[in-house]
Each structure stands twice: as C-alpha cells, then as structure tokens.
Amino acid sequence: MKLLIAILFLCSLAFIGAAQTEVTQDTLHFKEAPDDLKKLIEEISATKEKVSSDADIEIDGLLFDETKTKSGRDFYDFFYTAWEAPKGARNYFIYISEKPYRLSTTMIEIRINETLVFQSFLQPRNEIVEQLAQQAVARTQVYLANYEELVRQLNGEDRSGTGIF
C-alpha cells in the first residue's frame, strides 16, 4: 500500500512538473522525468512480472468432504482412492456434499467450482456406493478434460466479433 502511495505521489510530481512547461513560439518543452521516478517505474514493472508468474502457482484439485452419513463417507473414500486428475487440469476444487433424503437414502452431489457435475441417490449398500463413486470419478474426469477445451474455444477468434450487428 505504501508503495502505491509513493508511486502516485511521484507520478503527480512528474505531472505537475510537466504542466509547468514553457511555451515558446507554439512549441512545448517538457522536463525529463527524474531518475528516481524512472527507477521506481522499472521496479514496479519487474514486480508485476514476478506477480504474474507467481499467480499461476496455486493449490489445485482440493477435495472437500461435506458428507454427513457413513454411506456418504464411504462414497468419499471410494471416490478419493479412485480419483486421478486429468493431465492439464488446473484451477479447480471438488466439493462432495450430501443431503438427506427419504429413510436411509441420501442425495450425493459433486461440484467443481460451484458447477454441479454429478448428482445421484446414495443407498447404504456398499457395492452400489462403490459403483456410484466410480461413475462419479469418470464423469468428473471427463468434465475437467473438456473444461480447458471449452474455455479455449470460448476465447478463440470464432467468438470475437467486429461489434457490427
């Protein structure tokens, strides 16, 4: 914050200095920026490059367990053991949540960055829980594999227009 204030102060000094130029015979003469200001601008541009490269480093692929019952916890365990992220997938979190339903069944949901990817009823039978976990892993992997491609297509030249309707 102090660095930003210093930058604004030095820029305003440079602007005020530029505003006090002399006008002689329809030409303007500007004073050259002080060396301290040039040095500060170089330091800021160097830190911007560092920040942009550091911003790419994140903790990706966290699995959040928001289950409430034993069968939900078993589903999470099966999902976790079978989970392997697709190559190139980044900037995502996986939320596995459970909502109570009728009697001993519950609703299991898998969300990737707040987008619902998988939803199913979960019964307390272990074989069914394991099969549902494998299906959920497959569907989640397909979603993540296609997600990068969809983002690339949406930002491509085909989607950019001229602005003329």
Rank of each mutant, 00 (worst) to 15 (best):
I5D: 15
L8K: 10
C11D: 12
C11V: 14
L13S: 08
L13I: 10
A14W: 05
A14Q: 12
F15A: 15
I16G: 04
A18C: 07
T21K: 07
T21M: 11
T21P: 00
T21D: 08
E22Y: 04
T24Q: 13
D26Q: 14
T27H: 07
T27D: 04
L28E: 03
H29M: 10
K31A: 14
E32A: 11
A33W: 09
D36K: 09
L37R: 00
K38C: 03
I44P: 02
I44F: 09
T47I: 14
S52N: 11
S52D: 11
D54F: 15
E58F: 05
I59G: 04
G61A: 02
L62T: 10
L62R: 13
L62M: 13
L62V: 14
F64G: 03
K68N: 11
K68W: 07
K70N: 11
D74N: 05
D77Q: 09
F78M: 00
F79C: 00
Y80M: 08
Y80K: 13
T81M: 06
A82H: 01
A82M: 04
W83N: 01
W83I: 01
E84P: 00
E84N: 09
E84I: 11
A85H: 03
G88D: 03
A89T: 02
R90K: 15
F93W: 06
I94P: 00
Y95K: 08
E98G: 01
R102M: 09
L103K: 09
L103R: 11
T105H: 06
T105I: 04
T106D: 04
